[in-house]
Simulated scan of single mutants.
Amino acid sequence: MTDTTGVPEPAWRDPKRYLWLLGLIIPAFPFIAWGLVAATGLGLFWWTGIVVLYVVFPVIDHFIGKDADNPPESALAWLEQDRYYRWCTYAYLPVQYAGLVLGCWLLTRGDLGAADRIGLTITLGGVAGIGINTAHELGHKKESTERWLSKVALAQTVYGHFFIEHNRGHHVRVATPEDPASARLGESFWRFLPRTVYGSLRSAWGLERARMRRLGKSPWSPRNDVLNAWAMSLALFGALVAAFGIEVLPYLLGQAVFGFCLLEVINYTEHYGLLRGRTASGRYERCAPRHSWNSNNVASNVFLYHLQRHSDHHANPTRRYQALRHFDEAPELPTGYAGMIVLAYFPPLWRRVMDHRVRAHYDGDLNRANVQPAKRARYGVTA
Results as ranks from 00 to 15, higher is better:
Thr5Gly: 12
Val7Ser: 06
Pro8His: 05
Pro10Asp: 03
Lys16Asn: 13
Leu21Asn: 05
Leu21Ser: 07
Gly23Ala: 13
Ile25His: 05
Ala33Met: 03
Val37Gln: 07
Gly49Ala: 10
Tyr54Ala: 14
Val56Asp: 09
Phe57Ser: 02
Ala77Met: 08
Tyr84Phe: 15
Tyr85Ser: 02
Cys88Gln: 12
Tyr90Phe: 15
Tyr92His: 10
Val101Tyr: 01
Gly103Phe: 01
Leu112Ile: 06
Leu112Ala: 05
Ile122Pro: 04
Gly131Val: 03
Thr134Trp: 04
Lys141Gln: 15
Thr145Glu: 11
Arg147Leu: 01
Ser150Pro: 11
Leu154Met: 12
Asn167Ser: 09
Val172Tyr: 00
Arg173Tyr: 11
Arg173Pro: 00
Asp179Thr: 02
Ser182Ala: 13
Leu185Gly: 03
Val197Leu: 14
Ser203Arg: 12
Ala204Phe: 02
Trp205Cys: 06
Arg213Lys: 14
Arg213Pro: 08
Ser221Asn: 10
Ser221His: 00
Arg223Trp: 03
Leu227Asn: 04
Ala229Ser: 15
Ala229Leu: 03
Trp230Gln: 15
Ala231Met: 13
Met232Trp: 04
Met232Ser: 06
Met232His: 09
Ser233Leu: 05
Ala242Met: 12
Ala242His: 09
Glu247Leu: 12
Val248Ile: 14
Gly259Ala: 04
Leu274Met: 11
Arg278His: 13
Arg283Trp: 10
Arg283Val: 13
His291Leu: 06
Val298Ile: 15
Leu307Glu: 00
His314Asn: 07
Arg320Phe: 06
Tyr321Asn: 03
Asp328Thr: 12
Glu329Ser: 14
Tyr337Met: 08
Ala338Tyr: 08
Met340Leu: 11
Val342Lys: 02
Arg352Gln: 12
Pro373Asn: 08
Arg378Ile: 05
